[in-house]
Nucleic acid binder design. Structure first.
Lengths: 336, 336
DNA sequence: CGCCGATCCGTGAACGTTCACGAGGGGACC
DNA sequence: GGTCCCCTCGTGAACGTTCACGGATCGGCG
């Protein structure tokens, strides 16, 4: 039944190539994957046939027989926040070393999108890494037993893998620095609301208490995670508490917004008000004044996450140790 | 042979679940994909069995039967250059709408890594989108007939899909603006060497000629694509040509570096020397002085690229029109 | 001339899932 | 009581590839 291959709707298969080249499937397979049990002349003929048919092996059929093609899903909230691409770069780096693929999804910080990403990824990948706000129960429900590594979650976390940031230590360094500069009235711009505070806010409040500083819950404002949010939140904070002399940002973008608002109001940074960020983006070196910040090795976060995935994939032991940790360090620049 | 499933090394299969639940494969399939031809009670029992066995359907076997699970590969050079995450965001956005997955790979601007990414991606995805420096021949060779959409390549490009930037128009706006400000001696910091100039350099030189401005090939220096590169290249350019009054950067990062070098030398921007970037990063609003730049809708580049992929995947027509184009616009801020 | 090894190639089976089809049982309706 | 239909469930086949094995051919050597 010649010509039948031409009529087929889908792509060319290995059978079509075999038929055109006048050999068997196995010989085509040998030519494509260049095994050695094949005559060079035959091999060339087969490759030519494959070329004319536009043949490409099905990754599904191939993956079914061959094992070990690992794909991991990476869920990040905002691709346009420079923080996350740096984490992603770390993930890609280690994944590449291992020959793994990485599928990226963006959640935009939305709980729905987060779960949706989980649902679609869960039957496309072998493990998932990412930033999630949802509770463990909900995550497990949409995971179907898939290995998951949570990024920058609390220490109460135990049923999944995790890579944590030692925010307590980071905040300790930040507040200690401000105190050493003589600051007493210190505010914060958190990235989360008061009724569901971030770990950074809690660590901040702990440090304030540890230093016996005056404290007021009103000294913490809630900001979205970008520069514009920092601008708005800083304006509110300054309106309510004009006597603050220092402010800590949930992240660098918010801190940059804080500086901008301060400057627009004629306040000098750091003389009138000191600002300190949390991230250590390279962006901080470019603005004026340069941003003092608690620097996180963002690439390391990504790298450790993939290491955890590897461990969970190898022995399918539930998270052995209680995750990996990254210790931040304070970079003192000009803003505080 | 009871207990045999327990001994198996690999993951649990649908057979194992069927055996444990005392039903057939098909019934398990119905429960998993919640079809309706199943008794609710049976369904619950099957799901319970699946849970205890930690069963997850093989994406390979599933993909073999079901058609239409599209995965596209995205190759970008530097994840840490804010430009590319914005393009990626556009790609992810449209991909999500279509229910496609996106595998991301980083080439670091290396020709080898670029080809390597192509090799590994080519049998993991259904189409590839990205930034490539290699020649068409080389690309085609490592592509095996896979649809490819080139980002920001020259207009001579025809055998693949492409999304282009109208750099000529962008440079026209930039140079016209500088000329209107009275500038005559204008230099450029290109991101590519003189023997393989970028499209932006060529467009720049065209505009210089069009305005009958004095020109000298020494007025263009070669920079790496980051801030540090811009600093170094600007230093070299100013050393060689202290009489320049304006400089155009290949991208915003390089332009920022140029501003920093100028300021370190005590030059006022834009009074002593004007600097104009090419990208329109939001970063440009944060530095002082704010960066005048030729803004590119980066998200649009990514979105159009996925549209092209869809078109190439649907009708497998070779690139019909000569690609899509994005027209940049000049954002005048403080640096020029 | 017969045996043996090397080289090249083909045939069934298997990977794990879904599709097409059909079987069995039970209730409703004539 | 028989027929028909609906609901639930199971069986063979197929998706496209690779693996394990075996067969064929050819040259060399005793």
């Amino acid at each position: 039944m010649p010509g039948r291959e031409q009529i087929k709707a889908g792509r060319a298969t290995i059978h079509d190539v075999a038929a055109l080249a006048g050999v068997s499937r196995q010989t085509v397979s040998r030519a494509i994957n260049d095994k050695d049990e094949i005559d060079p002349e035959t091999k060339e003929r087969v490759l030519q046939a494959a070329r004319t048919l536009g043949y490409r092996p099905s990754r599904f059929a191939r993956g079914l027989r061959r094992r070990g093609a690992v794909t991991v899903g990476l869920v990040i909230s905002h691709l346009t926040n420079p923080y996350f691409p740096e984490v992603a770069a770390g993930v890609l780096e280690v994944a590449k070393e291992r020959g793994w693929q990485v599928i990226v999804a963006e959640s935009h910080g939305s709980a729905d999108a987060e779960i949706e990403a989980l649902d679609t990824l869960s039957h496309q990948v072998d493990a998932i890494v990412g930033y999630f706000d949802s509770g463990d129960e909900l995550l497990a429900e949409h995971l179907t037993g898939l290995p998951l590594v949570l990024l920058e979650r609390g220490p109460d976390q135990t049923r999944f893998g995790s890579v944590g940031i030692d925010v307590t230590d980071g905040m300790r360094q930040a507040v200690a620095h401000l105190v050493a500069q003589g600051h007493e009235r210190i505010g914060m711009l958190d990235g989360a609301p008061a009724d569901n505070p971030s770990l950074r806010r809690l660590a901040f409040l702990d440090q304030i208490h540890a230093h016996n500083l005056p404290v007021d819950k009103g000294w913490v404002a809630w900001s979205s995670h970008d520069v514009a949010g920092g601008e708005v939140a800083m304006a509110e904070l300054l309106d309510a508490h004009p006597d603050l002399t220092a402010v800590v940002g949930f992240n660098d973008l918010i801190a940059v917004g804080a500086i901008r608002t301060a400057q627009q109001r004629g306040l000098r940074v750091p003389d009138d008000i000191a600002v300190i960020g949390f991230d250590g983006l390279t962006l901080g070196e470019l603005i004026t004044p340069t941003l003092t910040s608690v620097r996180i090795d963002k690439g390391q976060v990504g790298r450790l996450a993939v290491d955890q995935v590897a461990r969970m994939l190898a022995g399918q032991d539930p998270p052995t140790s209680d995750g990996a940790w990254v210790r931040p360090d304070l970079v003192v620049r000009a803003s505080a």
